[in-house]
Design a binder for these strands. Structure first.
Length: 428
RNA sequence: GGUGACGUGGCCGAGAGGCUGAAGGCGCUCCCCUGCUAAGGGAGUAUUGGCUUUAAACCCAAUCGAGAGUUCGAAUCUCUCCGUCACCGCCA
């Protein structure tokens, strides 16, 4: 959520910045609603003050034994008027809230301007796509030939876009997960274990709700009496539970930056992606991810984004997987993001770079919703800046290892960094 | 799941319709006193919004787990929900 004060005072500047990311701000609607809000709020508060004063008078009169009947008569109509004013005020505020909740973050000054994916900017490239003296296969072919990948079983158990991994492939996924967690721990990230089911407040905090309900799996409680808003959701990313650890908290400045890492499954409905990446592990309803989350001081956050990017890159480098870093343009960054770097790994099976990590700076956009603040000494609390990034998407890393380390005979060489996690095995 | 107790500031803890944004204590900050240490004295110490402003103070409103209700007036009474604790049941 953007700062309401900023929206009031610099509406046109905000609108211009949002336009670069393809969002048209209805400035007229906001202006007129804000004007109404002011009127209604002042009116309601004036009535409240009046009521408070008179009620206090009644209390005193009663205490000193005076007749309070005339005073009561005086206040008689106040209640209704107050109720009306309060409702009008709340009404407008709800409308404003609604509009504000749907406004995306302002792009960072360093985010390239552009309309869509094609305008993203390559920042750097690492490694060289391997030279195969045979036709490289894609991961599905490789894994199926070994009996490591059972799509039919997954469909039988659940539905399309789920997988059953077997034997060495399942172990390789576990090895990758542990490898990543160890790397991040060594770099000073605290490992955390979190709930994979979250409430609505958490999803609002990180910005998935109210706008992106369709992408989420909602869990109904199976209780016909339960008519309130206690619905729970499967997490679409570890970002949600991990960032929400500090919701409503005020952090001592000496405890910043806070750096956390967590391994979680992620659940996405992938509504609207029919027909894309239908084969294999690239796009699943359930996948594993190791996430990094960082809370930082505002003045450190831009650097923190670069640091997180390098941290994610270090995983790919240790694994020897060629990749490139893309700075997403204004038209392609996510709703809550101010700036995003994507890591794209080379997949020989597709002869293409594919997204394997997304690292984003949210500035105070999430923190405002989360009410995550920090305090210097006795000063007033200020909003922190939040960041997160995949480090990495484990399923896609698994794909990348299979495809980049395949041999002509269909076997897979185990990257050096992973061998300790597989009992020293060098080839699968 | 059942029964009972309970959610008050950074923490502990009083309050049980009005004089309570909230006694008292601890902690913390500043000042005084003090050879050192220990002790003592004084002042301050929540958040959000409105208004004003260069900024702040002042002023006003809201907040005693959350929401709704009763009342001229709610931390206090009623209802719903969430959570904590104890005992019982079940369970990896």
């Amino acid at each position: 959520m953007l700062d309401a004060k900023l929206l009031r005072s610099n509406l046109d500047t905000v609108a211009a910045k949002l336009k670069t990311r393809g969002f048209m701000l209805d400035t007229q609607a906001i202006q007129s609603l804000e004007a109404q809000r002011k009127d209604f709020q002042v009116a309601a508060q004036t009535l409240q003050a009046e009521r408070n004063a008179k009620s206090k008078g009644i209390g005193k009169a009663k205490a000193s034994g005076e007749d309070i009947a005339p005073l009561l008569a005086e206040v008689a109509s106040l209640g209704d008027k107050l109720k009306e004013a309060e409702e009008a005020s709340q009404d407008v505020q709800a409308k404003i809230e609604n509009i504000y909740a749907g406004i995306p973050n302002l792009p960072h000054a360093s985010t390239p301007i552009g309309g869509g994916e094609e305008d993203n900017v390559e920042v750097r490239k690492w490694g060289t796509p391997g030279d195969f003296d045979f036709e490289p296969k894609d991961h599905v072919e490789l894994a199926e030939a070994k009996g490591w990948f059972d799509n039919e079983a997954a469909v039988k158990i659940a539905s399309a876009r789920f997988s059953v991994l077997k034997g060495p492939m399942a172990k390789l996924q576990r090895a990758l997960t542990q490898f990543m967690l160890d790397m991040h721990s060594d770099a000073g990230f605290e490992e955390v274990y979190v709930p994979f089911i979250v409430n609505q407040e958490s999803l609002r905090g990180t910005g998935q709700l109210p706008k992106f309900e369709a992408d989420l799996y909602k869990i109904s409680k199976n209780d016909e009496h339960d008519t309130n808003d206690r619905d729970l959701y499967l997490i679409p990313t570890g970002e949600v539970p991990v960032t929400n650890i500090y919701r409503d908290d005020i952090i001592d400045v000496n405890d910043l930056p806070i750096k956390m890492t967590s391994h979680t499954p992620c659940f996405r409905s992938e509504a609207g992606s029919y027909g894309r990446d239908t084969k294999g592990l690239i796009r699943q309803h359930q996948f594993e991810k190791v996430e990094m989350v960082q809370l930082s001081k505002p003045e450190d956050s831009a650097q923190a984004l670069e640091d997180l990017t390098l941290q994610a890159e270090s995983i790919l480098q240790k694994l020897g997987l060629p990749y490139r870093v893309m700075a997403l343009c204004t038209g392609d960054i996510g709703f809550s993001a101010s700036k995003t770097n994507d890591l794209e790994v080379w997949l020989p099976g597709q002869q293409a770079y594919r997204e394997i990590s997304s690292i984003s700076l949210f500035e105070d956009f999430q923190a405002r919703r989360l009410k995550t603040r920090y305090r210097i000494g006795q000063d007033k609390p200020q909003l922190v800046h939040t960041l997160n990034g995949s480090g990495l998407a484990v399923g896609r890393t698994l794909v990348a290892v299979l495809e980049n380390y395949q041999q002509a005979d269909g076997s897979i060489v185990v990257p050096d960094a992973l061998q300790p996690y597989l009992g020293g095995v060098t080839k699968l």
